[in-house]
Write a protein that binds this DNA or RNA. Structure first.
Length: 263
DNA sequence: ATGGTTGGTATCCAA
């Protein structure tokens, strides 16, 4: 059994200590990271090499940035949708690779800012481009994990006070529909496949006092799996403990225990 | 309705 996980770091340099401690204590095989907020020349490669991990990354100054940290070397690593329209930002928001017989797609979906902001249009378009990318380059019968920060709480159970969040960029009808269209291609929400209970969140806003204790969170980080990939998953859970460690992120580690060898 | 915090970079923007 191998542990795979996704984590929005909100700066990988600020979170090196926390990530190292987590990788070691959990014996993680593959970690997908979002919001590294660092240019490639400044990525802390040696921190993870010293722990025996391979790192693959692309980032921008201050914003965005994705990475995969893996015990085994990855194959076929690429960035962006490869739809002929990739901007530098797109490359810093999507990394794809092959790992242990699985296709891994690590995404950092644009947050969107506000419903009437151009960034929200870009967010919906981003979901469309992701779906087109799947239709073009993959099949629902393949063993695929799409994991990362989707900036979408799919159902009312996935956010506190859903009745008050209908105009939020991470919960309004249009983004939830875009998310559902993605699932409609042939993907399952891994966490919900294992745990139907409420008050299970992956993100707690820094600005909300005692958010974890008060249950004021969002489930916006996800591991989506095709049916055949889900068949290899034995467990899927949110690891909240690092929130008690030094310099926690506002996101949590979302984990899956996977039986290896999908080919 | 508003504001609260954090990080990277500047002294404000994004989340």
């Amino acid at each position: 059994m191998k542990l795979i996980a996704t984590f929005n770091t909100n700066s990988i340099r600020a979170r090196q200590g926390l990530i190292s401690k987590w990788l070691k204590s959990r014996d993680c095989h593959l970690l997908c990271i979002q919001e590294t907020k660092v240019q490639d020349k400044d990525f802390p490669v040696s921190t993870f090499e010293e722990l025996g991990y391979h790192t693959y990354f692309k980032g921008q100054k201050s914003y965005n940035g994705v990475a995969i940290i893996s015990k085994e070397p990855l194959k076929e690593v690429s960035f962006g949708f490869d739809d002929g329209q990739d901007t530098e930002e797109d490359l810093a928001r999507l990394i794809r690779a092959q790992w242990d017989g699985f296709y891994i797609i690590n995404v950092y979906v644009p947050q969107g800012r506000a419903l009437d902001h151009p960034n929200f249009t870009k967010k919906l378009l981003w979901y469309d481009r992701l779906l087109e990318c799947l239709e073009r380059a993959y099949k629902p019968t393949m063993p695929i994990f799409i994991m990362g920060d989707f900036n979408c709480a799919p159902e009312p159970i996935d956010v506190y006070a859903p009745e008050r969040k209908k105009d939020h960029v991470c919960f309004n009808e249009s983004v939830r529909e875009a998310f559902k269209r993605l699932l409609g291609w042939g993907l399952v929400d891994c966490f919900r496949a294992f745990d139907p209970s409420p008050n299970k969140y992956t993100f707690y806003d820094y600005r909300v006092p005692k958010a974890v204790q008060r249950g004021l969170g969002w489930r916006i980080d996800h591991i989506l799996a095709t049916e055949v990939a889900l068949g290899h998953v034995k467990e899927c859970y949110i690891d909240l403990e690092p929130r008690l460690w030094e310099r926690p992120s506002d996101h949590t580690f979302l984990c899956a225990k996977v039986k290896s060898g999908a080919y």
